[in-house]
């Protein structure tokens, strides 16, 4: 899956879980600082990403995913 596909899939999840407008879900955006996503919504995003992309995001890895770009990188490097 290309980075563009991952980004658009992630944007769908962000819209559904946290009400983020898809146009705002760009790689440089910080989940907590820019998109107002709290720690529990991050868990919901992680489980939705796991379901959608077939990757596992353990809780200790979740703490390292701070921006949309981090999430795209994570999915890209972990997808089978």
């Amino acid at each position: 899956m290309s980075r563009e596909d991952i980004q658009s899939g992630l944007a769908e999840i962000l819209e559904e879980v946290a009400g983020v407008a898809p146009a705002d879900a760009t790689p440089e955006k910080s989940f907590t600082e820019d998109l107002d996503v709290d720690s529990l919504s991050m868990v919901e995003i992680a489980t939705a990403v796991e379901d959608k992309f077939g990757v596992a995001i353990p809780d200790d890895e979740l703490g390292n995913i701070k921006t949309v770009g981090d999430a795209i990188d994570y999915v890209e490097s972990h997808q089978g």
Partner: peptide, 12 residues
Amino acid sequence: MAGQAVYRWATT
């Protein structure tokens, strides 16, 4: 309490 871990466990 590890809030994120417990939340994930409870909701999944």
